[in-house]
Design a protein around this nucleic acid. Structure first.
Lengths: 212, 212
DNA sequence: ATAATGTAAACGAACGATTGCTTAAAACAA
DNA sequence: TTGTTTTAAGCAATCGTTCGTTTACATTAT
């Protein structure tokens, strides 16, 4: 029971902080606000996570770990390039959809002046990049070429992240909730196809395809 | 002289805040830090901008105004679609390059719980979308189709914004400065072409082009 | 010409509120 | 009892903002 209680309280803090960080950004959220939402005493945060930044570290670890474990096996599959790309887009979009708050907080680009956190993120990103080296190679991306690095998978993920940041923001504001409500299963089926098409054949190719 | 002095102090606050907001995010920066960097008394911030959020509003107005005035005339030009897209990509990338701090702060997606600021951004985005309606029409984008909205120009800007966020972050950290230094004129010439190619013909088209 | 008035810019000090975090004791389970 | 979990209270520091005052210069009146 004790262990159970333990987990529950820690989990509540984690989830409350995650939701608040996603909504307002790390710096804009205070520990008291987290404690209030988690229905927990303030000191519980330091008890379980050491410091405020400890929650963020936990979020980052959780997100990158799950992300890597999700896309790595897909990247290692042996499929024709086009099929492979489509499957990867599908995988990434679904992961972002199911873990929107996690990716918004963990994949946020604005640097925090907390060296430890920055190092943690760098470590993860480097690791994932190495783990996906084969997939990148298959796409013919030369890791030395910074132009190719700037587009390719990097660009794809930027687009997807941007979409879910916008979606999440829209869900908060009454005037945009109507839009957010349209983003259902049906939408994502089409979205994944359209995004794959765009990445594979571009805007002109996509246009030709539609005109056929 | 008085007016001259006025401009200088206000400008210093604006620029100091802009740099700090871009680096750390709005919420992570205090007015004292801004005042210190601007070499100005703390109370001058409220004197010139009313409140801390007033600086942010000024930044947002400055950015969107300049952005719209830059891309609008390009969007209204009468060019073949491909040429038009390439010119637009070139225009947007150069604008982001020359106004990196402005776009990082103003185009940041994470919502601030300052209703006034959110309304201001919404107003600008709506206006720009309307102003660029002809260009979107030319690309064959149906504004009602949220799938097409999610990719297209939205995706392109997301990619470019992501690049400059990464670049700006890299410039701050010693271990990445080497990378940031490579992002020179030569790089952006290639980057603009590669990004245009990707958007127009996709990854497969780009690959075919290179193999020729 | 000199003195009085007006005005905008800048200053240091302080306001109440909130920040992240710590402590010591109470409540609980084993 | 022993050891763990939860609590309330409080720490120093900082937050955004406002205060009354002073400086510097322009305008007006005498």
């Amino acid at each position: 029971m004790t262990t159970e209680h333990h987990k529950i309280a820690k989990q509540r803090i984690f989830e409350a902080a995650l939701a608040l960080f996603a909504r307002k950004g790390y710096a804009a959220v205070g520990v008291r606000e987290i404690a209030r939402k988690a229905e927990v005493n303030i000191s519980m945060i330091n008890y379980y996570f050491g410091e405020k930044a400890g929650i963020l570290k936990a979020i980052i670890n959780e997100c990158y770990d799950q992300y890597f474990r999700t896309i790595k096996p897909v990247g290692d599959e042996d499929l024709p390039v086009e099929t492979h790309v489509r499957k990867m887009v599908n995988t990434v979009v679904n992961f972002f959809r199911q873990n929107t708050e996690l990716v918004i907080v963990a994949f946020d680009i604005i640097p925090l002046d907390i060296p430890e956190v920055m190092e943690l993120k760098t470590k993860w990103i480097t690791g994932i990049r190495e783990g996906m080296a084969n997939f990148r190679k298959k796409l013919g991306i030369d890791s030395q070429d910074i132009v190719q690095e700037g587009i390719g998978p990097t660009a794809l993920i930027a687009v997807i992240l941007n979409h879910f940041q916008s979606k999440y923001a829209a869900e908060q504001y009454p005037q945009f909730k109507e839009y957010a409500a349209q983003l259902n299963d049906e939408f994502y089926k089409k979205y994944i196809d359209a995004l794959s098409d765009l990445f594979l054949y571009g805007y002109m190719g996509k246009k030709n395809k539609e005109e056929k």
